[in-house]
Nucleic acid binder design. Structure first.
Lengths: 202, 202
DNA sequence: GAATAAAGTTAACCATGCTTAATATCCGGT
DNA sequence: ACCGGATATTAAGCATGGTTAACTTTATTC
């Protein structure tokens, strides 16, 4: 197991470079949802008009108009005034990808991490447009494999479930392969677990 | 394994509610980095001043001043004009939590998903402030357990590595427990895998 | 104990992504 | 053919998170 603690060091230099890339991602969170709304409407009723999108997303029609201008400028939709909205090929690809991402992440959160459904939906929705394709394909592989009927996967599921149950009790246990030297997860990674279960702060 | 395809349906109604919560998360991406910068500077040199933060984050000093106003208004830092910046208890907790999140996610991406380091750093950084505590604790448990020397975990690591290697070849294989009826992942989840490996679009 | 350099703040501006209110366009009924 | 209602757009405003330029405060040096 890689050393957790060592990596807990403060934000390194490169972090700044990455941080600044947040705002020039291909898609903002809003844009991703507009694209998905257009794709969904197209599928549901054959066409997407400004009012439909506004209803679906719960925003004003003027908001839709201005967002369509942005998406148009990026070549993701076409939209002549007072007409229907169409996805371009690039727009369609991005919409599909974002949906796939949310879908895979939701599966991962519910069936592997086993968090409550609402939590899974929320977390998946928040990050669906931010996780890169390399990681996404691996999320899919991991989810598919853990859920498969490969004997190693089946055994793993059982063992992991037992471990979680044990670990939730937070009792140090020399028998547990994750608890090192009788220190359970919470003590093995001091200051790490504790940061998670304080709940929302405000 | 839960049915993937069924969940691939279009964005359901509740998605809108979740989407709109994006902008009232506890922390924005920027705020998270300011808090971490303050915490880091405090640790590295004992105090955090406006110029230090500006240098560290590569933003202008006036930008720092105005962000400190926001953070101050939220009760996450204290800062009297021309003085040093201090984290409040709430600010410190959020900084610690965000760092833990990035840390656990980076571990997960590198040691479990095994994506390249830069990808892991980038993806972890993008979502560190967006994943809820329930999911984070489960990410930690999963990462710790898969990396442990529990026999089920060891066997799983091997099997998963083999599966990935096999799957990367994209050959349908009746022997593979993930490939259903001789259809490999790519065909079992049509339109899903394909969306991932087209690379960045623009 | 000034003069000046360094550090910090304010002011004015820009882009994004929303809002409401007012205006413009399109379309069906008479 | 034209009028009203539905639909869509523009205009103006707001909050966030940045920028540069100008100004103020603090610190240092002689």
């Amino acid at each position: 197991m890689v050393n957790f603690i060592q990596h807990a060091a403060n934000q390194p230099r490169w972090a700044v470079e990455i941080w600044k890339r947040f705002n020039d991602k291909e898609l903002t969170h809003s844009m991703a949802h507009y694209l998905q709304a257009v794709a969904g409407l197209k599928q549901d009723k054959g066409h997407a008009r400004v009012g439909d999108i506004a209803d679906r997303l719960g925003v004003s029609k003027s908001g839709v108009t201005s967002m369509l201008r942005s998406l148009s400028a990026r070549g993701l939709v076409t939209h002549e005034p007072y007409g229907c909205v169409e996805l371009t090929d690039a727009g369609r690809r991005l919409a599909r990808r974002t949906e796939s991402n949310r879908h895979v992440l939701t599966m991962f959160f519910t069936s592997i991490l086993r968090v409550p459904q609402e939590v899974a939906y929320e977390d998946a929705c928040m990050i669906e447009h931010l996780v890169g394709p390399e990681s996404m394909i691996q999320f899919l592989r991991l989810t598919a494999f853990i859920g498969s009927d490969d004997p190693a996967a089946e055994r793993f599921r059982t063992a992991f479930r037992e471990y979680q149950h044990h670990c939730a009790g937070k009792e140090a246990d020399r028998e547990c392969p994750v608890c090192k030297e009788g220190r359970c997860l919470a003590e093995t990674f001091p200051g790490l677990v504790g940061t998670f279960d304080e709940g929302p702060l405000k």
